[in-house]
Design a protein around this nucleic acid. Structure first.
Length: 480
RNA sequence: CGGGGCGUAGCGCAGCUCGGCAGCGCGUCUGCUUUGGGAGCAGAAGGCCGCCGGUUCAAAUCCGGCCGCCCCGACCA
């Protein structure tokens, strides 16, 4: 863009120099969130929530297409229920918030504020499932959960966070695993096609899997500071919860069997990833498919030239329901101020329209991702030009993120090199390893990173840590 | 949870060492002039100086405690 961003966007630190400060400033200045009086809890303001609504509505369509139904389960989990699955309670116990009183009366049994809802949903499934004809049961709920965190960061880790959690029960192991993969694919399309965040997908190592799961599928993105972020998970729970909560069904062969269950989630953390992935020194940059405002039309000198504003409104209307457009007719700001303001808020496409443009039957397009510069576009065929531009911006943003990811998957030749690469946050460090838990721990301890994902690519050669035959490819990174 | 930093007008900050009328810039309000990359002039409003306690004639300033936020580490979506 024409002007140096240093002069234009005040009060936002440079992304490359002070990444954490930049991140916080962008969220606050764009009015996405604010701090609340409650420690570790944030307020999601309308602009931030609109992004979440975009994620919700896209996922809702996909979930319904695949036969899932929404429902709502209690916020509270009686302590005795939470304790039924041993590994599960052990994993979550340190982070549980407890309700001990109702009014002035001490409760007979403490209630956990749900850190996740398996323990309150499974007992219901036990009631509802009698026969194989009741399966599969495909339910999710949208809501929030609470995990008591020691250190919090806006969107990335807060005490309360918003998510959906899917909980399904199936007749066979295969069917449950297929469900996990189906969900993983939906998440992958959400991340890549909508949010323009490329991901690596695969499984977690045993040490990183969900507490109570047999295995966990994960999506891992790479942020511009070289740190990985878990973008979503899909857990194959085997029969662990079925056994703990006695969820059985009578199969075709007239024998009683435990169901196979899954659970899966993405959270408002995705919004944090979105901001980090695409933002720049000027503030937010949102991919068109998720931007609450996709196009802003800034009329120039419209107070002196009423025809400008009238035409701006007509153009906005011509875009129809399919495009989220706003005409910025505020008279208290100059055009230049509005340009900066909307750029800071990440609006993908700005259209400038002034008296000179009207004379020439044109307007000016300025794409937020900066690669288009400014260009004149004829008002004939305006709507089609806008749609094409939004598609182009979406594609460019994904391509840029994708090439960043690809450039930051690095392959070490030795253990020492792997440790250095992880420490230096070079990205996803690709390590052939044996399945020996001690190898995993050794690299974790030495590097300060963690195993993020095991892809399904075949392993060859020797384990980089132990020298034994490699059995899997593990991608290590420092992580959020 | 450790180490470091911060908390003063809506926002960004100065003042604190060395106690003595609470300031600056931006924003807000009024008016006029302006409007193609954060406009100009003039006037005005706006404060439990994070909270609680202590020292003192007097506390934003010194002392103690607490709360919150940020950064860097250890644990977690």
């Amino acid at each position: 863009m024409a002007t140096s961003d240093k002069e234009i966007v005040k009060e936002i630190p440079r992304k490359s120099e002070r990444f954490s400060d930049w991140y916080t400033a962008v969220l606050l200045k764009s009015d996405m969130v604010d701090y609340s009086p409650v420690r570790g809890c944030m307020v999601v303001r309308p602009y931030g929530w609109a992004i979440w609504e975009g994620i919700q509505s896209w996922l809702d369509r996909e979930f319904k297409k695949t036969g899932h139904q929404n429902a709502a389960f209690p916020l509270f989990v009686p302590e005795s229920y939470l304790k039924k699955e041993a590994e599960h309670v052990e994993g979550f116990a340190p982070q549980v918030a407890w309700v001990t009183h109702g009014g002035d009366d001490e409760l007979g049994e403490r209630l956990a504020v749900r850190p996740t809802s398996e323990a309150i949903i499974m007992p219901m499934y036990a009631k509802w499932i009698q026969s194989y004809r009741d399966l599969p049961l495909l339910i999710l709920q949208w809501g929030s959960v609470v995990r008591w965190e020691k250190a919090t960061r806006l969107f990335l880790r807060t005490t309360e966070f918003f998510w959906h959690e899917g909980h399904t029960a199936h007749q066979t192991q295969q069917e449950a695993d297929d469900e996990c993969r189906l969900i993983l694919d939906i998440y992958k399309r959400l991340l890549e096609d909508v949010l323009a965040i490329p991901v690596l997908t695969g499984r977690k190592t045993d040490s990183e899997k969900f507490a109570g799961a047999d295995w966990t599928y994960t999506l891992e993105a790479l942020m511009p500071d070289g740190q990985a972020i878990q973008a979503g998970t899909s857990h194959f729970l085997g029969q662990n919860f079925a056994k703990a909560f006695d969820v059985k069904f009578l199969d075709r062969d007239n024998t009683e069997k435990y169901v196979w269950t899954t659970s899966w989630a993405v959270t408002t953390r995705l919004i944090g990833s979105l901001v980090m992935q695409h933002g720049d020194n000027r503030g937010l940059a949102l991919p068109p498919r998720i931007a609450p405002v996709q196009v802003v039309i800034v009329p120039i000198r419209h107070e002196q030239t009423p025809a400008v504003l009238a035409r701006a409104r007509a153009l906005a209307a011509s875009l129809g329901e399919g495009v989220r457009v706003k005409v910025d007719d505020r008279d208290e700001f100059t055009p230049g101020w509005k340009f900066n303001d909307w750029e800071m808020r990440g609006v993908p496409l700005r259209v400038e329209l002034g008296p000179k443009d009207l004379d020439k039957n044109q307007c000016i397009f300025a794409a937020r991702d900066g690669e288009g510069g400014k260009r004149a576009v004829s008002l004939d065929g305006f709507a089609a030009a806008v749609v094409a531009e939004l598609d182009a911006i979406q594609a460019r943003m994904y391509a840029r993120a994708k090439s960043y990811l690809e450039a930051h998957v690095v392959t070490p030749r030795s253990l020492d090199e792997a440790i250095e690469m992880i420490k230096e946050r070079q990205g996803f460090v690709r390590v052939p390893m044996s399945k020996d838990q001690r190898a995993e721990e050794a690299l974790r301890d030495a590097s300060g990173g963690s195993p993020r994902v095991v892809t399904d690519e075949p392993a060859a050669g020797a384990c980089l840590v132990t020298g034994a035959p490699a059995e899997m490819i593990v991608y290590y990174a420092r992580a959020y």
